[in-house]
Design a protein around this nucleic acid. Sequence first.
DNA 1: ATCTTTTGACCTTCA
DNA 2: GTGAAGGTCAAAAGA
Length: 145
Amino acid sequence: MASENIEDDKKSLPLPSADRTSYDGYNWRKYGQKQVKGSEYPRSYYKCTHPNCPVKKKVERSLDGQIAEIVYNGEQNHSKPQLPKRNASGRQGQGFVSDGTGLEINNPSLVNQVNDRNKGFEGRVEYQNEVGVGVQTTFSGQNVP
DNA sequence: ATCTTTTGACCTTCA
DNA sequence: GTGAAGGTCAAAAGA
């Protein structure tokens, strides 16, 4: 594999997942695309498809098809969707109903900032990460004094 | 039929 | 108050 597959073949995914863009465990719906100044690449805007999910995601790609920058806005208020969960008939108890990733939902400062539309703050900045348990909270800028 | 993606226009914010 | 850049919404098409 030299370096192709940039915009072709989309029906040959041996993996059960990776249906949407950058599979990170959540479902995103693209709601816009704009070209920002200073960058030759267009920026894509995604929003969580869950109800009551004020989570937004900004994704910028490079010509190589690699993620140049991913900016997450806000936090998931609900757990991850049940993807590879096959429940045969006769299921009742749920011993593992909590988040499958262990993502914590307690960021008053972040929510406050986002809610107040604070400037000089970009919520969370994350780079290409793997799915499963790669959820680190990296804060950029300054926090409340 | 449902859902997602795509594009244009409009709105918001900062200087 | 205007301009520019960025951000968001809506309608239509495709899968």
